[in-house]
Design a protein around this nucleic acid. Sequence first.
DNA 1: CGAGTTCTTGACAGTGATCAAGCGACGTGG
DNA 2: CCACGTCGCTTGATCACTGTCAAGAACTCG
Lengths: 256, 256
Amino acid sequence: MTLNTVCLTGNFTSRLDMTPETIKVACSNCNLRELCMPMGFNPEDMQKLDEVVATRRRIKQGGMLFSSGDPFTSLYAIRTGFFKTCVSTEDGREQVTGFQMAGEIIGLDGIVSDFHSCNAVALEDADVCVMPFANVEDLSREFPVLQRHVHKIMSREIVRENGVMMLLGNMRAEERVAAFLLNLVQRLHARGFSQSEMVLRMTREEIGSYLGLKLETVSRTFSKFSEDGIIEVKQRYVRILEPDALKKIFNPQTCS
Amino acid sequence: MTLNTVCLTGNFTSRLDMTPETIKVACSNCNLRELCMPMGFNPEDMQKLDEVVATRRRIKQGGMLFSSGDPFTSLYAIRTGFFKTCVSTEDGREQVTGFQMAGEIIGLDGIVSDFHSCNAVALEDADVCVMPFANVEDLSREFPVLQRHVHKIMSREIVRENGVMMLLGNMRAEERVAAFLLNLVQRLHARGFSQSEMVLRMTREEIGSYLGLKLETVSRTFSKFSEDGIIEVKQRYVRILEPDALKKIFNPQTCS
DNA sequence: CGAGTTCTTGACAGTGATCAAGCGACGTGG
DNA sequence: CCACGTCGCTTGATCACTGTCAAGAACTCG
């Protein structure tokens, strides 16, 4: 399982190992390949696939990778760092639509209209692979496995959003927060980090925006979970003490 | 504008014209082509494109086109009828994730895992074109314009869901209901129906599920809009009397 | 070290949920 | 064609969850 060797910057806890910052641009020797590229390529095809990525781009914390209204040209594969995507109404209300980490792809919102319809903000210094969408489409026609991969990425995003709609439409505050924590720690674990500890990259307000709650409610829910001995919270640091209790809150039926 | 000639069964009001039920299966002479197929094909390519659709399938009202857990094989283009898609939790809570009408594509949720993750239920007798996804992918590789079209459809769904997240996360009941009505009537209008009248195909409970509200709240909101002279409601029949008032409720900033 | 941001906690309020009852529409079968 | 049963819709009364407002504490970063 090579997932343990993916490289993430930032001071997450319990890093299993640290790859030095000498990684080539090419996908063919990128540690994140398993996350953002299809599997099972022979080496020479892999070589051709390196053409998807045109350049790299660094975004400082707080910077925008793209904004609503920007012309759409490329998808972006996150190499390091952490993003939020959000949409906003004309009267200034903001909805965080997702949090993205290494190996995930952002920018899919721009395909339909050739303009981005959401903002992508770096929550920590980040590094992305720029994949001009024309390249993606050209190579997709040549490599069915890449074509399938692109379709799966888009479908996964649709299914993820279905899940968020369920959260927002049907779940109470505690269920939403439990689901959020479980989802986040699971994704970090898949990248080689601890399955019980994490350092949140976003504020309570951003969590609240994502979950359809106010920041005070998020804070109170954290405090309640903490009092109940389910988690340990100290600002951005969160440790899950009773994952089963969290799962039970998220899904009351499965009384494991 | 050939959109006026699309054919929808059902007793929507203000049908502009009625095409007889003699339409061939082939996309090349389907009235809905403009809605679910890419534009600007020369006739011979159009011929080849007919291969996307394998068969047609009729679904009775209340019937399932597919269910969560079903193996994924095909996308479906709605020819006639009206669907809802929904996901449900193990403890029986249901979230309607969308309402789909003629010319729209459903089944995209199945691509990522080769299994469907939501249910598609016909809210009235329906007729769909079955497009085996293998065909879609094969022809996409051959025809860039189809490839682009498929990508746009998936991106459009992602953007739509972003909008729903905004509704669910940030909007109050009146705003959600106003947005729902405006969206529905706009889509019907694009299919040649009235821009002010419609017959809802779904129950108050289904609307509520979609909007993250209880059916009583939906009903009360309809009543309030009715008392305010903004709409006229009689059961499933809805007439929009003051579209600008609705838009203003949906988006308080744009005080037109 | 200090200014600003983020987080926590308390008191109170309001929106929408819940519970309950009755009405109206529709479909079926006599 | 009408009676009846079912389902969906409306409306009222009350409640609870989460939002709002406010103050202070803790942390961050220049």
